[in-house]
Structure formats: structure tokens, C-alpha cells
Amino acid sequence: MTELATRWLGLELRSPLVVGASPLTDDLDALRACVKAGAGAVVMHSLFEEQLVEEQMAAHRFIDSRINMDAEARSFFPESEVFEMGSGSYLQRLELLRRSLDVPIVASLNGISTGGWTAHALELEAAGAHAIELNLYDLATDPSETATSLEQRQQAVVRSVVEQVSIPVSVKLSPFYSALPAFVAGVEAAGARGLVLFNRFYQLEMDLDELELSREVVLSSSAELPLRLHAAAMLYGQTSLEMAVSGGVHSGDDAAKAILSGATAVQVVSAILANGPGALEQIHDGLNRRLSDMGYRDLTEARGALSMAKAPNSRTWERLNYARLLHGWK
């Protein structure tokens, strides 16, 4: 059998399978079952800076509006500081997972300001996170803003966090960069330790009957995996950042493809949400069988074997493959 133990972000993992950021953070029993099934690490759901700010402002508005209604109100309304407004509950959950699970716990941070990212990153480190996953989501809506300025701002955020914490920082990217290798080089120069390819943005849908926007979570399928494989295969050998594939991994073969493309870790969410922790065990066993059947003794031998740097015909990853597909789709 293939040895699946690996190192990711400087952390010792019993397998490359990682429970990705998801609502499973709040289900300790499910996470225990995932670890038993072969998970090598757990990523918590994101701590959203803007959500914390909104909660704080709402509480202040509530108290202030009632204080102004009565001159004696200040004598019986509590101070706003007594409310749990901030990252407290998230930090408590992080500490609980650290005590309860014998695998590395990665905190996830989704911020909107350089100062906010840094302050919360320090809290996560103090609470015991083994690493931090920065979830970069900065949507360009201003036509005067260029891709260069947006990317420079994101790289500055990465740098500000890396400079403040001593634990490894991984950056979760969107698939929409026009020159991904160049941006990744900037992230590496900013001091990051790893990449996650890619974020699955939950898009708004239109309800035509009610004439309004609606939100619906649609789980991934294996059809989303090739986008991640292409990016990992392209970046392997061009960056020292340790890559994790996230999105579209539903089988052992899917996980094997991610490793062969150059990934160090493979994040799984939708398969677990759909079929429970048993799905992770099936992926774990399937990955082991596939790599063993291919003759690989460990993940180091398998990693990047089908990347652009090592593929027998690297041009199949490039534009030439697009033309061939169009002419031979039948």
C-alpha cells in the first residue's frame, strides 16, 4: 500500500485529505468521524470580518436608540461590552477543536481591511490555530480600479498577516486571475506558505416569480475538478508554495489526480456534506488503492507526475489541447 502520510504547511499529516472550510466546524461528532475515516487536518469555516463589524454596530445601535428614549435609561441598560460581539465564539470553537481532535486545526479568515485581517489573525494564533487560511475575495466593481491595483492590495493583505503571525499562512484564491502564475509569485514573495485552488463562490440566483435574488448552496461535482488540476499542474515546479486542491473531489481517483497534478493536500467538503464522513473513508481507501496500483510507494513519488513540468507531453495542458478538443469532440 502507498504511504499517505505527508507534510503540509510544515504540519505532519497522516493523510493528504483535509476537511475543508464548511459548516462541519460546528459538528464535533462529524469531525471526529472524519478524523477516524482518515482526515489529516481540519479547516474551520471562515471568520468574516464584515459580519463581526455588523454585529457590533447593530448592538451599539440597539442600546443607543433606547438610551436616548429616557433620561434614566442609562441606569438599567447594560453596557454594550457585556454582549458577545466579535470573534469570541469562533475562538472558543477553535480551542475546543484543538482539545478534541488529534490533527492540525487550520483557522480560516475572510477579511475586508488590512488592519482587520491582522488583528483577527493574531487572535487565531493566540487561540491555538496550527495555521491560517486567508480567503481572498475582493470583487472589482469600480471601473476605475485596475487588476494590478486589486492584486497589489491583496498581496499587501497577505504580507501584513504573515508579518504579524508566526504560524504558516495559506492563501485561498479565486480562479479568476488573468495571469495566475504572476499573482502566485507575488503571494509567495509576500511570505505565504501555501495555496488553496480554488474558492467555490456561492453565486446568487434569480427568483423570477418573486423578482428577487435568492441564495442557494449547490454542492460541487467532479466536473469542477479539471479547473483545479490545470492550475496545480501549471504551477507545480514554478512555485515553492504547497498547493491544496479544493472543489470537485468526490472519489479516490479525484484525489489521485490532484496529487499527480502537484497538490500536497486535497480538501474535501461537498462529498462529506452529501454522504457523511463515510465518504471521506471511501476517498481515502480509493486514493491508497489507485496510487498503490500505479506503483507509487509514497506521495512524494506521485506528486506532480502529470504536471506541466513532468508530463510526457506538457503541451496537452496548453492551448493546443483546446483546438484538438474542438475538432474531435465526437
Rank of each mutant, 00 (worst) to 15 (best):
A274C: 08
I105A: 06
E212D: 15
M85K: 07
S251G: 10
G262D: 05
L47F: 10
Q154A: 06
L4V: 01
R66M: 10
F62L: 15
A189E: 14
I283R: 03
L225D: 14
V268D: 07
M308I: 11
T6C: 15
R66A: 03
E188C: 06
H230C: 10
V269H: 05
L139R: 02
A274I: 01
T6H: 06
M85A: 14
F83E: 05
A223Q: 10
M57E: 14
L52I: 15
P143F: 12
V218Q: 15
F62W: 13
L28R: 10
L11P: 00
L291Y: 06
M1G: 12
Q238P: 00
L325E: 07
E50L: 02
A311P: 04
S89E: 06
E55Y: 01
E49P: 05
S261W: 08
L139K: 00
L197E: 02
Q154D: 09
E145Y: 09
S65R: 14
E54K: 01
E55T: 00
S80C: 09
G191W: 04
I63V: 14
L109H: 04
T148C: 06
A119T: 02
W317R: 10
E151I: 11
Y322N: 02
G86C: 04
G115M: 10
A271N: 07
G20I: 01
N313I: 11
P104W: 05
S174G: 13
R215N: 11
D293P: 06
V218R: 12
T118K: 04
R153N: 05
A119E: 04
E163I: 04
